[in-house]
């Protein structure tokens, strides 16, 4: 019952921008929809017990790849969005078999170092990525001859992608694959003894979660129309951790709630970044101290269900 009420509330919020009609509200709503696939990707890794700090880098790889495929190779935007999202997936497939042998804090440091290297490459390979001065002139997204020129257009695009990725992640969670991933997280030795190839499943989850991050990156690139290495660094790691923590990792709905609550903050507090940091910090500590399972735990009683 409560879950349905939350779905209804989210739908209502999703429709809100059209009632208000302000460009600013549409912008915030679009940013929320863009962050949802990214945070859901991060969440899939949290579900298998790995805190990945590589996801902002995957986000950036998706963004630059989608933009460059359209700009340099003249690929149609929808195709470059999908192919662009496959780029971080392929990178995850390449590094995953090495990274995912490592667990816990070592994985955290490893993925952090990986993210820093990718961010440095964005900064230094100016010929391709434009460096710190940025990559300009990303064309508008278009699909079936429709050019997306207004913010509300991108909001619809983001909404569709967010819903699709949400449904994908929910399907994974409820399927046998979800049961396997959860089993591996709960008791790896037991799960392996029954024949499950732990590494292969972890790599698969890593690849899927990188794809979600890539989709988010691609839409971001087309929406903003300009890329610099700036958003793909440590600040986004903090944002994502706040979203997962505030929403709660216990259910796929958790990070979505986290994104809805968290993304508007920096936009609303644009002129007072120090307060934003303070609120983030208080949220992290408060939830860890009083509600480790996040907002979702107030809605769903058991760990599954939503």
């Amino acid at each position: 019952m409560k879950v349905r009420a939350v779905y209804a509330l989210i739908l209502l919020l999703a429709a809100l921008p059209w009632f208000i009609g302000s460009r600013y509200i549409f912008h915030i709503a679009t940013m929320i929809t863009i962050m949802i696939p990214l945070v859901l990707g991060m969440h899939l890794m949290v579900r298998i017990g790995q805190l990945s700090l590589a996801h902002p880098a995957f986000w950036g790889l998706g963004a630059y790849a989608s933009a460059l495929l359209t700009m340099r190779l003249g690929m149609p935007p929808l195709l470059s969005l999908l192919v662009g999202a496959a780029v971080p997936s392929l990178v995850a497939l390449a590094v995953g078999p090495i990274f995912l042998r490592i667990k816990g804090v070592f994985f955290v440091l490893l993925t952090f170092a990986f993210g820093e290297i990718v961010d440095l490459i964005f900064q230094e390979w100016t010929g391709l990525f434009g460096g710190n001065s940025g990559l300009y002139g990303i064309p508008k997204f278009s699909i079936l001859g429709l050019r997306l020129t207004q913010i509300p257009h991108y909001y619809v695009l983001g909404l569709i992608a967010a819903i699709l990725v949400y449904l994908l992640m929910r399907a994974i969670e409820r399927s046998d694959v979800g049961a396997i991933l959860e089993s591996l997280n709960e008791d790896e030795m037991l799960s392996r003894s029954m024949g499950a190839n732990a590494l292969a499943w972890r790599v698969a989850a890593f690849v899927v979660s990188a794809f979600a991050a890539g989709i988010s990156g691609g839409i971001y690139a087309f929406y903003i129309g300009f890329l610099s290495p700036d958003p793909f660094g440590f600040q986004t790691i903090v944002d994502l951790i706040v979203m997962v923590t505030v929403g709660g990792a216990g259910s796929v709905l958790g990070p979505v709630l986290g994104a809805i609550v968290t993304v508007p903050l920096p936009e609303l507090l644009r002129d007072a970044r120090e307060y934003q940091l303070m609120i983030y910090g208080v949220c992290l500590i408060g939830f860890m101290k009083f509600a480790k399972q996040g907002l979702i735990s107030f809605i769903v009683d058991k760990r599954r269900g939503a």
Binding site: V108, I241, E274, L277
Partner: peptide
């Protein structure tokens, strides 16, 4: 994981206070 998140929270609070 909760330990990491808690310390990350403290870290950004201290930064913002000094800021």
């Amino acid at each position: 994981m909760p330990g990491m998140i808690m310390s990350l929270g403290l870290s950004i609070i201290l930064q913002s206070v000094v800021l």
